[in-house]
Simulated scan of single mutants.
Amino acid sequence: MTHRKPQLAADRLRQLIVYDPATGLIKRPTGETLPNTWAARVRLGEHGVYRANRLVWLYMTGEWPPRSVSYRDNDPANLRWANLRLASPKQTAYGRKARNKLGIKGVRETPNGNYRASIYVNDRTLNLGTFTTKEAAAEAYATAARKHFGEFARP
C-alpha cells in the first residue's frame, strides 16, 4: 500500500512563504529569498518538498495545479504570475527546444543538401516541404507550429 503525504493547503502555504506576483520572488517570512526556477525544490519543513512553480499556482489560485505549469516566455526562472499557465504534457512538449544537429526545430538536411521541414501533430508527421535554405524550412515549421500549437508553439 502506498502512502501519500497530505496535500498542503493554500492558507498554510501563505503562512510559510510570501510570493510577489509582479516580480516572481518567493520569500520566507524571515525575508530569505528562495530559488527561482521551475525545478527549484522548496522545502517547507514537515510539509515536504515542492517545485516552486506548483507552489506559486497554489498560492495564487488556492488550488493545486491539475496539470503542468509552464512559462509563456519559456524561461523557468521567470516565476511572475503573468508568465505562468497550465499545460498538458503535449503542450509542454510543443515548447521544447530543437534536438537536432541543425538546432532548428522541425528541420533536417536531406542527402542532396536541401532542407526538409516537418511537424508532428495528432500522432502524425506532416511533411511541410523541401526547401533550398534552412531559413525557408524553419519559417515553414514556425508557421505550421503557430497554426497547430497556438500560444504553446516554440519554433
Results as ranks from 00 to 15, higher is better:
N53F: 04
T61R: 08
R96F: 14
L126R: 05
N74C: 04
A93V: 02
R72V: 11
W64C: 06
A77V: 00
P29T: 14
R41M: 13
R108A: 09
K27C: 08
R116M: 11
Y115M: 07
A93F: 11
L102Y: 15
R108V: 07
R28Y: 09
T92W: 00
R41W: 01
N112Q: 10
K101T: 05
Y19E: 01
W64I: 01
P76W: 13
A98E: 06
D75T: 09
Y115T: 03
R43M: 13
N78D: 15
Q91F: 07
A117Q: 08
N53P: 00
W81G: 00
V69Q: 05
A98H: 12
P29V: 10
S68H: 12
Q91D: 03
A22W: 11
G103V: 00
P76H: 14
T33L: 14
R85M: 05
I26N: 09
W81N: 01
G48I: 09
A82I: 14
P21F: 12
P89M: 02
E63S: 07
Y71T: 11
P65S: 12
T61D: 03
D75Q: 14
G62A: 14
P89A: 09
V107S: 10
L58M: 06
N122R: 05
A82W: 11
R51K: 10
V42K: 08
R43A: 15
N74H: 13
R108T: 10
N78I: 00
G24R: 04
L55K: 05
D123T: 00
N83W: 07
T33K: 09
G48W: 04
Q91T: 02
W38G: 15
Y94R: 00
N112W: 02
A93K: 08
P111L: 00
N53A: 10
V18K: 14
A39V: 08
L34C: 08
L86F: 09
Y19D: 02
R67W: 08
R116W: 08
Y94L: 01
R85W: 14
R116Y: 08
R28P: 02
A82F: 08
G62W: 15
A40F: 05
A82D: 14
L55G: 08
S118V: 04
N78G: 08
H47V: 03
T37D: 11
N83A: 08
E32P: 02
R41K: 15
G24E: 01
P35G: 13
P29C: 13
S70P: 01
V121A: 01
N74K: 07
L84D: 04
P111D: 04
T125W: 10
G31T: 12
L84F: 02
A39D: 09
N36R: 15
T33W: 00
I119F: 02
S68F: 04
N127G: 02
V121H: 10
R116H: 14
G48S: 10
G24D: 03
P66L: 07
N122A: 06
L86R: 01
P29D: 11
N127T: 05
N122I: 00
N36Q: 15
N36C: 10
